[in-house]
Design a protein around this nucleic acid. Sequence first.
RNA 1: GGUCCCAUCGUCUAGUGGUUAGGACACCGGCCUCUCACGUCGGUAACGCGGGUUCGACUCCCGCUGGGAUCACCA
Length: 478
Amino acid sequence: MTVCTRYAPSPTGSLHIGNVRSGLFAYLFARHHRGRFILRIDDTDRERSTQESLEEIIASLQWLGIEWDAGPPDRRYFQSSRFDRYREAALRLLREGKAYPCYCTAQELEAKRRQAERERRKPGYDGTCRDKPYEAGLLLPDRNSGRNYTIRFRSPREGQTVVEDLVKGHSVFQNSELDDLIIFRSDGVPTYNFATVVDDADFEITHVVRGDDHLPNTPRQIQIFLALGYTPPAYAHLPMVAGPDGKPLSKRHGATSVFAYRDAGYFPEALLNYLARMGWSHGDQEIFSKQELIEYFGFEACGKSPGIFNPEKLLWLNFHYLKQRPPAQLAREVIPFIEKRGYKIPGDEKWLEKMVVTLRERAKTLVELVDFAHFYLSDDIKVDPKAAAKFLKPDIAEPLKALAEGIAALSDCSESAVQAVFEQVLARFGLKLGQLAQPVRVALTGGTVSPGIYEVIAVLGASRTVERLNRAVASIGA
RNA sequence: GGUCCCAUCGUCUAGUGGUUAGGACACCGGCCUCUCACGUCGGUAACGCGGGUUCGACUCCCGCUGGGAUCACCA
């Protein structure tokens, strides 16, 4: 049997990095086994599902390079288009006495739940309607037609359900702990636990890979599989990812959606690598290409304990990918980030490449790179007053002037040519490199931190350099 | 509260009865150096507790403690 896994997000919000990790693992497992990976949209909750978040999910997965063999835009992979199948399955359960109508109202159930809690009993459904006699020809609920009841699954009360989990191992659940859950709501919409089972069966999912928050649902789902006459799939429940404070990841932790990282200048390779490495490992290796991930991935190497999201390590990984990026590619990728800041790029692609090369060991994200690039991209340089006070003093005016003249006379403003001019000026004034480089740096960049001074000048070009040098000399004179 | 899951440096982890408990991020220090970085060398830092099993437990078993998840007409 060929392996088939699925990722089944519900389009009710952004695609969360903790959530997408489950999708990634399902994807890697399928690819590793040369199986199929399905993207299914769990949109039975029509109130909360939005087109916008569907689009975000799809774009996020595409950006990450997690491609699906079946799924959107094919409507068959939307739960909202499969209601006939759910009705059919539910009706069958009803006919076979494996499900029953429940006439308890939401208010009554809520009251019972509170009562049970007060008496410290378990809050599950008490089975009030479970033993009502079967009504032949009973229809599924439909509020519009006045059929205001729900359908509950008649869960076995004896015995136990064993979950053999590929990650967590063996877990035993007493069936007496499982209450009769609603599989069809009174508005005629199937509930998650039911729709999921019908889908997983129909699509022949062999391995259900998901967050371990679903583990308590699993015995219930297994019972539904059995009632429907299907063989349950294998399960792999991944531990969850928490924020740095150990609490579940949420907006409180700042950026958590895939889009947020994309927009913050992270690379998909870095995010993928990071996500894979948390909760899974392959010896001491830290850097993995997507191909390596696919080649090495397996549930036996997945940890069982929850992980804490570490933004610093992600940043480090991103830095790694940034450093080793081919300059032409990096130049291309940084353009949208430059434009977003409203800069007009003062050069061609080759120029951008040169610029980016001087910056890539100093920035960890594309956004940071653009931050650093301000003095390259704009001539509106604000000189830091403290830096000016320290380095732009009267006795440096003459050397700066001489340097400006030397550079102005250059036919080719290359790093080595610039270096030669520096050496002449240094010799003439009896200065050490540091004594000249820092003032020049302040004059050209406005601050005391920048790439190597020859590189900066080579990228800036002679005219912009001379202009800034002269401006600095003028400011000293004033 | 019931049920289920989990437990090695601050964090991600390697480890599968005998190791100076290894790597990575972060942090600290040296070197490199025109600044900042990069790079490089080195350092601080962990087996939650208590019982067993065993010649020997980080490793196996039990208990405790501590975390987490879940108990909806949400997914």
